[in-house]
């Protein structure tokens, strides 16, 4: 079970959280301006990288807040967490 570092509560076991998938996929401001392919890209296309991955996490059974996290999908190490709306930190490589 992962130990997830909630930026508001501290490290807590994974069962308290829900992972919301890839971060930084903003809902288009004007969905009608997108053609079907671009809309499908927004809805379904995800990068699923091997290595560092920016993800959305919700501390569902804790403070109830969403935050972003950089997690290494190979080692499961959490590199850092940051607030919703903040840009992805410029961190390269593994821990």
């Amino acid at each position: 079970m992962l130990l997830v570092p909630c930026p508001y509560c501290g490290p807590r076991p994974e069962v308290e959280f829900r992972c919301g998938g890839e971060a930084h996929i903003a809902r288009p401001a004007d969905p009608d301006a997108l053609d079907d392919a671009a809309w499908a890209e927004y809805l379904f296309a995800r990068t699923s990288p091997k290595g560092l991955h920016a993800e959305r996490w919700l501390h569902a059974h804790g403070c109830g807040r969403w935050f972003n996290a950089l997690r290494n999908t190979v080692s499961d190490a959490f590199i850092t967490t940051y607030e919703m709306g903040q840009p992805r930190p410029d961190i390269a490589g593994d821990r």
């Binding site: 903003a26 959305r56 569902a60 807040r65 969403w66 919703m84």
Partner: peptide, 13 residues
């Protein structure tokens, strides 16, 4: 509730 909260916190804060 989670669906609403998700949009409220992450899309339209």
């Amino acid at each position: 509730m989670a669906h609403m909260e998700d949009y409220l916190q992450t899309e339209w804060p």
